[in-house]
Design a protein around this nucleic acid. Structure first.
Lengths: 246, 246
DNA sequence: GAGCCTCATTGATCAAGATCAATCGCGCGA
DNA sequence: TCGCGCGATTGATCTTGATCAATGAGGCTC
């Protein structure tokens, strides 16, 4: 599998800061620009929603920058984060008009979006866009199933390690040979806990433990230096393949 | 959304016992029959694999009957079941030749399968098959994310209830007004435990508890009568919508 | 700079579920 | 029919992570 495919958006329009020649080669950029529009969501004040569970979704959006979380909150307040939307991920789906989850901007988010009808027409008329959407969806499905292993069978320490490793893999830590890689956490401790199926206290304790064990270093609440990616990946039950070389 | 879509296969060929006119209307049944072949896997002796993680997948298969489980086993033996394949579900994917999980027949399984290349050609040439595969994959993705909520935030009792409710929804219990619905469990207690991220002992205790509370009745190890579907769905944090009326 | 507010960390205790260990029940073959 | 084997159940105890509670560390306003 081409690893890069995870990091390129489903479509690129002429206004998007992110382009991907393989996708664009067969598209008419002007036509895409006409059909799409850039929209931003601010993460402050807290709780800006891109969509609410059960709410009508009028657009199909491709994330250009920032981070959004998909979650469900049970009646009694328990909350589970079921996924993160990072640049190149998409929100919305052809064939259904409702969001299955709450989607919330956790940092300022910019998207390139299409009206549903326009996007469905684009899918119909542009086979490589349809094929790309299918590939991305299959990758997401594999990722969601991988995550089930983390949620169902891993210890708190392993969960935190797996989360950090997956973040490095997805947003790419800034690797600096010999000094580890720098990682910005887009989520609060509470959101991380909700992602991992843990409490905020347990999450905090495990981060502290990884720090004391020399695997990571905390530069600030949201900035982490991965001191030993290989060891961290090992903690996550992961062979460390595909991570940064430091 | 059309609920039935979950229960119809991606393609129907003239030899398949399951047909779906909406899918077949535009297909040439003879052509599909030529491209596909029926194959069976026996569940005994235990451990018959439809595919192994990392193994080359030469075919795309649509499940016709039986039940298979997708799982991952960690080095230390911990195991997580990441999904069940029931009739109309599919195994394999265009664009990647390797299975991400172990796929094991838990009851005798029959599939209708296509060679990868033939299936990819079918996808290219038959837009409604491609569109149907996308819809099914998006539904699977939603289901996988729903399951993350169960794995991450539910108690043992809620997990078992959620599992039973999801089985009734998917394979349809035989509803008998006033006497509840009969449910056949395709999985052993151990496999259920692996699906729920629990141990076999906890799973067994929770089943016993649900029985003592009058929500279910055990006819045998593998046969359950759902005495009160509404109450069971409530335990699972589910409004009970879409279940059998009994 | 003082006070406050939010988020994160740390500590003490508790409970849900895991683990270890019998025991049960049923099907099967000698 | 007896004994064996396997899966399921039940019991006793232990451990991990949850819960309850306090403290710490910035950042912001006044």
């Amino acid at each position: 599998m081409c690893r890069m495919s995870r990091f390129s958006p489903i479509v690129s329009c002429s206004e998007c800061p992110i382009r991907h020649s393989a996708v664009c080669a067969e598209c008419d950029p002007d036509e895409l620009a006409r059909l799409s529009a850039i929209k931003s969501y601010r993460s402050f004040p807290a709780g800006t929603m891109l969509a609410e569970a059960g709410e009508r979704l009028t657009h199909f959006s491709s994330i250009l920058s920032g981070c959004a979380s998909m979650s469900r909150t049970l009646e009694d307040g328990r909350r589970q984060n079921v996924g993160l939307l990072l640049p190149s991920d998409y929100l919305g789906r052809p064939g259904r008009a409702e969001s299955a989850f709450d989607v919330e901007a956790v940092s300022d988010v910019t998207v390139c979006r299409f009206e549903r009808a326009a996007f469905e027409a684009l899918l119909r008329d542009t086979p490589h866009v349809a094929s790309r959407l299918l590939t991305m969806t299959l990758d997401e499905l594999d990722a969601a199933r991988d995550w089930a292993v983390v949620l169902g069978r891993m210890t708190a320490r392993e969960k935190v390690a797996a989360f950090l490793v997956s973040l490095v893999r997805r947003q790419g830590g800034v690797a600096r040979p010999g000094r580890g890689s720098l990682l910005h956490l887009p989520l609060s401790r509470e959101a991380i806990a909700d992602h991992l199926g843990l409490t905020i206290e347990t999450t905090s304790r495990q981060i502290t433990a990884l720090r004391k064990d020399g695997l990571i270093e905390l530069l600030s609440n949201r900035e982490i230096r991965i001191a030993d990616f290989g060891a961290l990946a090992m903690e996550a039950g992961d062979d460390g393949d595909g991570g940064p070389i430091v």
